[in-house]
Design a protein around this nucleic acid. Sequence first.
DNA 1: CGCGTCGTTGATCCGGGTCAACGGTTGTGG
DNA 2: CCACAACCGTTGACCCGGATCAACGACGCG
Lengths: 242, 242
Amino acid sequence: MATLCENCPLRKQPLFVGMSESDVQTMQKFKVGELSVDPGTPLLIEGSNSPQLFTALRGMAIRYKTTADGRRQVVNFVFPGDFIGLQSGLMNEMSHSVEARSKMTLCVFNRSELFSFFKSHPERAFDITWLAAVEEHFLGEALTTVGQRTAKQSLAWALLRIFERGRMIGLVRNRAMDLPFRQQDIADALGLSLVHTNKTLGHLRESQLVNWSDGQLTINDTEKLAAVAGVETDLVPRRPLM
Amino acid sequence: MATLCENCPLRKQPLFVGMSESDVQTMQKFKVGELSVDPGTPLLIEGSNSPQLFTALRGMAIRYKTTADGRRQVVNFVFPGDFIGLQSGLMNEMSHSVEARSKMTLCVFNRSELFSFFKSHPERAFDITWLAAVEEHFLGEALTTVGQRTAKQSLAWALLRIFERGRMIGLVRNRAMDLPFRQQDIADALGLSLVHTNKTLGHLRESQLVNWSDGQLTINDTEKLAAVAGVETDLVPRRPLM
DNA sequence: CGCGTCGTTGATCCGGGTCAACGGTTGTGG
DNA sequence: CCACAACCGTTGACCCGGATCAACGACGCG
């Protein structure tokens, strides 16, 4: 049975900006159902045109693109609260695929209603655009990382971002959070080889900066890790929840 | 004296989706002025909160981020028809800087009117979000390039994208277009060193694939270049004009 | 028990970075 | 009118971070 938006556990998390009571009602009406999937399930395919949009409610996924010669770029990670399928809703075509990495539950919306939704709910339309801007912000940072930083800096940046995101949605308990991704996923996100990613991860572990093993990510001192990454501990920007 | 939206030379270009007569009137009312700048002029600064939004009418620019250790990532190039400053309008902070690379003319809009604009013109709000999705699409492709492709492929990809974009807005005459960027700009966009970019450019030139010199980019066979880049000659996606 | 997936580690190689020097052009001031 | 500096493109020599290749162990599953 589907979660009522009113009872949505995400809304309370510090990552998200407040929603008015009427926003909540609006989303409840827009929401047409809930979807549960197992790890490995493809949710959206690059180049396709899904009839549905999603908001991740529980679980994690990866967004990735595939090149002509078979290489893979992980473009972003999906966490609870992320909106999925916007491109398909606007440009009629996804520029990347989305694949679940853990068990997931997703809120489902109808793509065909998106335009009328924009007309009837301009504040929410504004928020959707805001989400797109947040995504653009992240991609710019990722591009800068892959283009300019060393493997060690990159890895520190990625794990720090993941961890901060997890913290903002209540996934971190006792300086640790569950992480269902594989090393290959991170490697493909950073444009590094699996082997080098593994070795660099080992170095970070030896330096007591990060411990990621058995599906658990532990970070004791985020400040120190940020220093290695070469970023100020600037926060993940707050955003609306759809 | 400012160009009237009605007479806007960009609207006719094949890159842009059609605007209704009322859309044109709407933009005319939203537009508060025009700005002309010389090469090198900063238009927006990373981290700042500009009171103005722009649409590039003539000329080119670069969007870039700077890392703590002083390196620079060029995140995208700005061509006529690009909308600038959306992030600042939504998140109150730019995630990158924008700097003119040629003489430019820009249409100016007031950031403070953006929200009411969303309420009164939902179709145009939809189009703004569409633009954000196009940007996301591009950044994903750029990330894939920097993360997965070789220097030669990257360079071919970048020059091809620039050229196709130029073609779609009428900048290409006789298989050539003006390009005010420096080699350093392209290098910083692709995460390559200037030296290696220069040498790779030389190779492409020898292979008769690309000739970029004296501020002119010439490409005779885009198909062949696309093959080198490892992309299908997929088009630059059409988009709205703000 | 055998097979597929994922993490780990060592050996070797190479694409591209870094360093250095030079030439052409433009602009500026004496 | 010329000296000089600043900027950009170009080219050669050398080196290193990370890719590639290869092999093995641990685990879960049919």
